[in-house]
Design a protein around this nucleic acid. Structure first.
Lengths: 257, 257
DNA sequence: CTTGACCCTCACGCGGCGTGAGGCGGCACA
DNA sequence: TGTGCCGCCTCACGCCGCGTGAGGGTCAAG
């Protein structure tokens, strides 16, 4: 018969042709996936056309996302290729879905990050007036070491302008809770006033830090002892600072039972 | 200030809540990504709410496909989140494209596998007549050890029904090459006959095995010495087997110069 | 005979955990 | 007061698909 003059290729040449690395060829050899049919006397791997064909198949299947072990199965049992392809298609389709979900998730995250980017000091001034910065600095002085302050800082750091707007709105609503009770002639010990106080406490819990009824009393004291807080409240309604303090105390007593 | 009564959670509890494994928590602790703020006297990891929050962020970013190292950066530099998100979106989008390419690639592969599944013996009978099986078996007997036969087997194993149909069509065309020359009164040594022989040789090269002009002579001998081959050819045109043999010899002589 | 481009064989590294092994701690129930 | 059992701890190796050297041989050209 004829002596087939095969073209035998070394690793480097094969690597170039099939666009894989030499290390990859070594690896496939090691695990027995594609072993060169021949070796030169010096031990060089020599790949025949047949080896190349097999390798080409491996490369294709790899691109289709098959694991090397599976590829070995496929090459040795060509009859099961179709089944495998179906399964693979399903798996890849699932990954596709996951990733496209992922893209929309990232998009949503981006949207949030863009629309609601961290509130700037400007934003806060706009919402709460010029005094905000000073008040904040002083509060830091006075309460910076406390757990409550630190937790508050941690939480509010990530507040967006929208969040702060909500805080402002909630704050206004809480004030209305008190003024409504006042205007209706209810005493600070009335249920309406206590409910307003409780809403206030819960809002602090929600937005800033854990505020127990006991701690709420401390706040209440501050509203009457610190003239700036007093002024802020009394500007809304004369006597409101005192009213709020008493309501908070009444509520704290109620809550503790 | 108030004693915040934190709810401290052990690894197992955290794992359940955030749907990660305990090992994952250990890992994050090891690499310093999320370290529990506290430990019990016995060394149990105890996670605070703050730890949980951080962990929650990690879990989200992981789902978005970030590497742990990147996540550490993101958590420590929240201002760069948007940039990262953009980059990540681009990367994920690219993967999405790749994978959807992959799906269509698999689909094409599936289509091929379905439409062109390996030709069955039935198909071959249909194309080449009932004698095919016997002829094949005998050929195996006679030539099974030869390189040419083995290479032929290797190649034709993956031939589809469509391939075999093409082989049949090519074969018919080659026969016509010879009969046309015969009908035109050209001798087997004519250029037309030699060209037909050369086309025949090249077709074998293409479809079955390396067929040198020298080896082609062996085939030619077989066409006249084996009555079944003779019959096959002579059925097309009386004297064709001989004509073909001579044309092949003439062509082989021409090719060798 | 040298040079430089290849080739070889170890053998470790990476990312993100999985999966034991071997040994305490904590809590319920007897 | 034991006794189970579950959960926690700390090593430490394994996995996949190679990347990346180190340390040394081979081969063709000049």
């Amino acid at each position: 018969m004829t002596e087939r003059t095969q073209t035998l290729l070394t690793v480097g040449q094969v690597a170039d042709r099939l666009d894989v690395t030499v290390r990859t060829l070594h690896h496939y050899d090691e695990i027995g996936l594609v072993q060169p049919s021949e070796r030169s006397r010096a031990g060089y791997r020599l790949y025949t056309d047949g080896d190349l064909t097999r390798l080409q198949h491996v490369v294709v299947y790899r691109r289709l996302g098959f694991a090397l072990e599976e590829i070995a199965l496929l090459l040795d049992h060509p009859e099961s290729v179709e089944q495998h392809l179906r399964r693979q298609r399903a798996a890849v389709q699932q990954r596709l879905d996951e990733i496209s979900d992922l893209v929309t998730a990232i998009d949503r995250a981006l949207e949030r990050a863009m629309n609601d980017e961290q509130a700037t000091t400007e934003d806060l001034k706009e919402l709460f007036g010029d005094g905000f910065e000073d008040a904040h600095a002083e509060a830091e002085q006075r309460w910076g070491d406390s757990d409550a302050w630190q937790e508050s800082q941690r939480r509010t750091k990530s507040y967006t302008k929208a969040d702060w707007a909500a805080v402002k709105a909630e704050s206004d609503a809480l004030h209305r809770g008190f003024t409504d009770a006042m205007d209706a002639g209810e005493p600070p010990t009335s249920v309406a006033a206590m409910d307003a106080a409780e809403a206030h406490r819960r809002n602090i819990n929600e937005r800033f830090y854990d505020c127990s009824p006991q701690f709420h009393r401390n706040l209440a004291d501050m509203y009457t002892s610190d003239p700036r807080f007093t002024a802020t409240y009394d500007e809304i309604r004369p006597g409101m600072a005192l009213y709020v303090r008493d309501a908070i105390y009444a509520n704290a007593d109620r809550q503790e039972q």
